[in-house]
C-alpha cells in the first residue's frame, strides 16, 4: 500500500475517494437503520407468528375505537389515523429542514426543525393518551378462575376475547365474589363516588339482579400475547420517536449555535433526518400490523 496516498486529506476510506460517494457517517447511519429494521421486523414477525398460531385473535377495531373527548362512540381507526398524519407531517417538515440545509439557510433549518420537534412531541402525547386509555380501561371479562371482573388491557391480561353468551355470564355471576360484583355494578352507571358507595352496600343477589338487567356484555379474556406485543412494539417505536426528538433538539441547538455554518455544510441534519424518517417508516408497519389487519 502506498503511504503517500494516506497522507493526503483522506480521513475515512483510505482510497482518497468514497466508493459510495457518501460520507462515512451517512453510510453507517444507513447500516444502523438496516439493522434496526431487522429488529423491528423480528418483533413484528414474532407477533404475526403467535397470531397465526391462535384460533382466536382480538379484533383491533374493538380495542382501538376511542377518541379523546368523544366518549362512548365507536370510532375505529380514527385516533390512529391522527397519529399517522402527525408523523407524516413531521416527516415532511424534516425533509424541508434538510432542503433548507442544502441551501445553507440557517433560519429555515431552525424553523423546520422546531416544527419537526413539535410533531414528535404531539405523536408521543397521542401515544401516552392511548396507553393510558388502555391501561385504565374498564371492561368486564371472564377470568381464568371462572369469575367476572373489571379489567384493563395490560401486558398479561386483556378483556378482548370472544363475547360471552348470556347463559355463561349468568353462571359466572353466581360464583363472582362481592367486591368484584360491586366493581362491575359501579361501571354501569359511572355515577361518581357516591353511586359506587351505594353499590358496595347492596347484597350479592341485588347486584347480580342489577347487572343482569343492565344488558351488560362481557367477554372471555383475550389472547395473553396481545397486550405484550402491543405495548412492547409500540413502546419500542415510541422509544425511537423519543430518541429521535432528542436528536432533533440537539440538531436544532447546534444549528442555532451556528456549528453547521462553521462546518460549511448541514450534513448532520440529513443524518438526523434519516433517523427521523426511519421512525415514520416503522410506524407504517406498526400501523399496518396492529390496527389495519
Amino acid at each position: 500500500m502506498s503511504t503517500a496516498v494516506m497522507h493526503k486529506e483522506t480521513k475515512w476510506w483510505g482510497g482518497g475517494r468514497s466508493p459510495f460517494n457518501a460520507s462515512y457517517g451517512k453510510v453507517m447511519m444507513w447500516y444502523f437503520l438496516m439493522s434496526d429494521a431487522f429488529t423491528f421486523g423480528a418483533f413484528l414477525i414474532s407477533y404475526g407468528t403467535i397470531r397465526f398460531s391462535q384460533n382466536f385473535w382480538t379484533d383491533p377495531n374493538k380495542v382501538f375505537n376511542s377518541f379523546p373527548g368523544l366518549h362512548g362512540m365507536d370510532l375505529p381507526l380514527a385516533f390512529v389515523s391522527l397519529m399517522t398524519f402527525i408523523l407524516i407531517a413531521s416527516s415532511v417538515t424534516m425533509v424541508l429542514a434538510v432542503h433548507e440545509g442544502h441551501k445553507m439557510n440557517k433560519k429555515g433549518v431552525e424553523k423546520y426543525m422546531i416544527l419537526t420537534i413539535i410533531g414528535g412531541f404531539a405523536f408521543l402525547a397521542c401515544q401516552a393518551w392511548e396507553w393510558t386509555h388502555l391501561l385504565t380501561g374498564e371492561h368486564i371479562a371472564l377470568l381464568a378462575n371462572g369469575t367476572l371482573d373489571v379489567v384493563p388491557t395490560t401486558v398479561t391480561l386483556n378483556p378482548w376475547g370472544d363475547q360471552l353468551s348470556h347463559d355463561a355470564m349468568i353462571a359466572a355471576l353466581q360464583t363472582t365474589p362481592h367486591d368484584q360484583l360491586a366493581a362491575i355494578a359501579s361501571t354501569l352507571h359511572h355515577g361518581g363516588d357516591a353511586a359506587a358507595h351505594n353499590v358496595a352496600d347492596l347484597s350479592n343477589a341485588e347486584l347480580i339482579n342489577t347487572i343482569t338487567k343492565s344488558g351488560l356484555h362481557a367477554n372471555h379474556t383475550g389472547p395473553i400475547a396481545f397486550g405484550g406485543y402491543f405495548f412492547g412494539i409500540t413502546g419500542f417505536h415510541g422509544f425511537h420517536v423519543f430518541s429521535g426528538v432528542v436528536i432533533n433538539v440537539v440538531m436544532w441547538i447546534k444549528t442555532r449555535l451556528g456549528h453547521f455554518d462553521e462546518r460549511g455544510h448541514y450534513e448532520m441534519i440529513e443524518k438526523a433526518g434519516l433517523y427521523w424518517h426511519f421512525v415514520d417508516l416503522v410506524w407504517v408497519f406498526v400501523f399496518l400490523c396492529f390496527y389495519l389487519i
Binding site: 398460531s53 371462572g146 353468551s165 359466572a172
Partner: peptide, 17 residues
C-alpha cells in the same frame, strides 16, 4: 380446546399463549 365457549367456566385454564 379450539373454542372456549363452554357453559361451566370453572373448568377453564388461563394458560394460553
Amino acid at each position: 380446546p379450539a373454542k372456549q365457549e363452554q357453559a361451566a367456566p370453572a373448568h377453564q385454564k388461563g394458560a394460553k399463549d
